[in-house]
Every structure is written in C-alpha cells, then in structure tokens.
Design a protein around this nucleic acid. Structure first.
Lengths: 188, 188
DNA sequence: TCCGTAATCGGAGGGGTCTCCGGTTCATTC
DNA sequence: GAATGAACCGGAGACCCCTCCGATTACGGA
C-alpha cells in the first residue's frame, strides 16, 4: 500500500491524520473525510494521497486488531482439537464483528476480495490453516475452499448487535460449522 | 411505500421516471439519479419525492422478478420433496443473483432488514415455508430461523459472476444446505 | 552553504446525493 | 365557470467524494 513516506513532514501528516481519524471514526463511522482532513490540518488532497480510499484508511486503523485475529488461529490450534479451535476462532471473529459493528460495512467491502490482497490474503490463510487441520483430523470435509468460508463468515459482520446480535451470531455460526463438518462416514 | 399518487401528472411523472430508470440502470448500475431525473424531464426533487432512496427506486423496478422468486417457493414444494424444493429454490436465487449482479449491492442492503418490511418479509415467509416443510419431513433441523437462512443466502448476492461465479455459488449452497440438514439421528 | 529537484502539499473543480421550500397546477366545491 | 387549497413540481443549496495540478518544501549532492 503506502510503504513509508520518507519525508518527515509527510510522515507527520500521516500520523496526524491517523490520530484524528481514529477519534472521528470512533465517534461516527460515517465521519466525512473532508472533516478529518480539515481537523488534521491538511488539505483533502494530502489525505487522499496517504489513503487512496476510505477503506484503506480504516483498514490501517484496525490493522492491529485484524492481525491479532489472524495470529489467534494457529495459537488456538495448538491448545485445542481442530474443531474446537475452529469454533472458538469463529466466535472471536463474531465478537469482533459485534464490537466494531460500525466498521463492519467497510471491512465487508474488503472481504469481497475486490480489495488489495494485502489484507484479504492473511485472513484467508488463517482460515485455510484451521480447515486443513480439521480435514486432516477427519472432522471436516476434505476439500473446503477457505475463500468460501470467509464469505460465509462475512455475514457475521452484518448482524445488528442491538437486535439480538449475540444469539443470532451463535445460531449462524452453528449453521456454518455444521455445513463444514465431514458427513458422518456412512460406511464403516 | 408510495401507495399511489392521485394526481395524473404525478402518476405520469412516476411512470416516466421508472421507464427511464430501467434503461439507465440496465446500462450502468451506478447511473446517477441526477441524470435519470433530467432525462425523465423532472426535477431531482420530484424523483426523490417518488422514491425517497435509491433503493426504493431499484426495488420498485425489480419488484416483479422478486415476486416471481417468492411465488416459486410454494410451487416447488408441490412438485418436489422438501429438500429438493429447497435446493432448487436456492439455486434459483443464486441464478438471479448472478444475473443481476450489479443490482445485488442494493438488494443486499434490503436484505439487511434495515429496510421496509414490505420487501423483506415476503422473502422471509417464502423461506419459512420451505424450512417448515423440511422440518416436518424430518430432513431439516427443527428450529431453523428463516431470517438466519436469508442472511446466509445474501452471500450469494455478492459472488462475482465473472470469477468462477457459478461453481462458487454451487459450493456455497451445498455448505449452507448441509448446515440446515437434520443431524443424522445418532441414536437408534 | 547553497541549489536543484523530486516528493509533497492542498485547494479548486467536476460530479453526486439528498433536503427544503416558494411557486405552480390539478381536482373539487360552489 | 370560477375559486381555493392540497398536492405536486423542480431547482437552489448544503454537503460529500475524489481528481488534478500548480505551488511549495525537504533532502542530498556540489
């Protein structure tokens, strides 16, 4: 994306934009970029050079949390059997979705795959690891496509937490997971 | 929504807007409302009075197709066993999603439930009918929530048909349906 | 220290969405 | 055939997104 500005004024601007954006977007997800730029004391053009799209700005803000989610997947696999790890990880994703409901819309766009792989791919990889472990253990179907599962998960990002969000997320997670389970070996 | 304008000038305007909008949106989903209004020979204000949101306009255009999908559900149940009916109906929804990919984004918003129930509820009802039939027959889980299933289906609306859309939709449908199946009666 | 230049700045501008409200017109009543 | 008021028209205006490009400035070399 934006490897690193070399000039220190540019760097300062970038930092200032991020700080202001964090507050502004926390207050209202739909905060205008115009306002953020103004408040950060830069022109709108500068903001757009640093963050070409609204999503890229938001993703940068949440990059940290997202990374944590991604790192969690292998960690869970070390302390749980694959199926349990999968479920726990899904729950964590759901919780994050509930927390950042406002942000969801944007990340949802990212989930679509139209976005730079930089953010998308690690997520897919994390899922792939979980799925592979499950397949190897025989508890999950063998040929699952991680992108498909991510797409299914993206639904979690759209549950209104105010309206029975937690219960609903749990129900849907169950549906998704059951869909991934290896069919009960019909023959011996 | 907009029950019916009583004055004939209003009605004419409404009709003209719809006609123009159908063409314009077919050409490009992101056609500007400003342009549509201009081409229809009405002020932008008039367009907005008739269709308060962009979605309401689009939904009105596609109301017909949507109704057909809804009517299909009970029809399928009469000629197929519940599970087969469900799958066929899902496939039809997927196909429609593929056809109107551009429109999807908007309908997706509707699917969210934030929209007027006028469009949302019939869809939920159609699903409920299918689910109930399956539950009664014992092939589906007993306490499925149609809204949950609709949410899962909404994912179909976001598959890029250009990139392996058909196969992907099929895969995901399988996952969703498998998640709905009654667990194989473990005992006995 | 001074300079050239490429990176950076930032706002004007084109296009959109949606609201608001003074002016206009239909439909009804007398 | 008026008259009148409710319904409707439509564009100006407020705000936003994003691009483009002339002006500005920091940084490395002479």
């Amino acid at each position: 994306m934006n490897s690193k500005p070399t000039r220190k004024d540019a760097l300062g601007n970038r930092e200032r934009i991020l700080t202001v954006a964090r507050d502004a977007l926390a207050a209202s997800t739909s905060a205008s970029l115009t306002a953020i730029a103004k408040q950060a004391g830069v022109g709108i053009g500068t903001l757009y050079r640093h963050f070409p799209t609204r999503e890229s700005l938001i993703l940068e803000l949440y990059r940290h949390d997202i990374q944590q989610l991604i790192d969690l997947a292998p960690a869970l696999l070390e302390s749980h059997p694959p199926l349990a790890a999968l479920r726990r990880w899904f729950e964590e994703v759901a919780r994050y979705g509930r927390l950042k409901y406002g942000v969801a819309e944007v990340i949802h766009a990212a989930t679509n795959g139209g976005l730079d792989d930089e953010y998308y791919q690690p997520f897919v990889d994390a899922i792939a690891v979980l799925l592979n472990a499950g397949s190897a253990a025989g508890s999950l179907k063998p040929d699952l496509v991680p992108e498909d599962v991510l797409l299914q998960l993206s639904v979690l990002w759209r549950i209104d937490p105010a309206r029975d969000g937690e219960a609903r997320a749990a129900r849907i997670l169950t549906l998704v997971i059951d869909g991934l389970l290896a069919k009960p070996t019909t023959s011996t």
